[in-house]
Amino acid sequence: MQVQMTVNGQPVTAEIEARLLLVHFLRDQLGLTGTHWGCDTSNCGTCVVWLDRTPVKSCTIFAAMADGHEIHTVESLETDGKLDLVQEGFANLHGLQCGFCTPGMMMTARWLLDHNPSPTDAEIREAISGQLCRCTGYENIVRAIRWAAEQTENSGEFASPGAQEKGVSA
């Protein structure tokens, strides 16, 4: 069957099998390997992408269900060579070791900060509670997200460039 959708702002048309999962469509057919494929059971959250600007687990959605919709992957966070503050936070505060969970963590973190620019640590932990990290013990991930929130507050900059375009508000 044929599907059409927007992926990271670009229109995409593709021929797929109905049983193809969104995570494999993004990775294998579009070559967007930033999104990782982990547990395959919607537990680990490394496959989190945005479907119509809401974080979802792409291992538990058929690509056919995204037909006509808008997808954002971790590749959309960086704009014109400039990292998103969440990406900077993960890099600067060691929010990763092996990096496997990182794309999902960052997509959830960006969504959280777009909707709640000054989250408490408890709110950060709740937001990422459906995502597993086996390296950091989560401490540095929470620090990285808190750092990104603080930079946003300090600089007066608000939300990701992509979110600004689309008028996402707190």
Binding site: S42, V48, P55, V56, G130, Q131
Partner: peptide, 9 residues
């Protein structure tokens, strides 16, 4: 029920 991401969908 599950986690925030699963509850989104």
């Amino acid at each position: 029920i599950a986690d925030p991401i699963v509850r989104n969908r």
